[in-house]
């Protein structure tokens, strides 16, 4: 069949430009749609082989709380998707120390491995990014 699409090469290099993207999550997961939309942006950037960092601060730290079970309340449990990030080579996940502690949380509460940074370190991290998207 001549109308079949060509088979893409295995190590695609077609996107060329790689930028440092940082997604800063500041909202709790279910009250608004920001968390889910941000996660989709992260997956798309990763699918395009961009250099992606993800920060969880303020109520955004609740997004990666383990043992979420929103199904009974009629919502999709997209917290499971954060665990797919490793397969997308998104491994730079950071949590604000101040935000975590203020909410009575510890690193044991999170469903993914994160690096805890204080505000000064987060500020330095954001300063070196080319694109920062906060939601």
């Amino acid at each position: 069949m001549s109308d079949l699409p060509p088979i893409p090469p295995d190590d695609e290099d077609e996107f060329g430009v790689v930028k440092k993207f940082c997604y800063v999550n500041r909202k709790a997961p279910y009250g608004t749609v920001y968390a889910l939309e941000s996660l989709e942006m992260v997956l798309i950037a990763a699918a395009f082989d961009q250099d992606v960092s993800v920060v969880f601060m303020d109520d955004g730290v609740y997004q990666i709380k383990s043992e979420q079970a929103p199904e009974a309340a009629g919502m999709k449990n997209f917290s499971k998707t954060y665990r797919a990030l490793e397969g997308y080579d998104v491994e730079k996940l950071y949590v604000s120390k101040e935000s975590m502690e203020e909410r009575g949380l510890t690193t044991d509460d999170f469903l993914v491995d994160v690096e805890v940074l204080d505000h000064a370190a987060l500020s330095a991290l954001m300063a070196e990014q080319e694109v920062v998207i906060t939601s």
Binding site: Y30, Q68, A69, A73
Partner: peptide, 10 residues
């Protein structure tokens, strides 16, 4: 309770 459980809070 159900809203706590949804958010992973025991």
């Amino acid at each position: 309770g159900p809203d706590l459980a949804a958010r992973g809070m025991a």
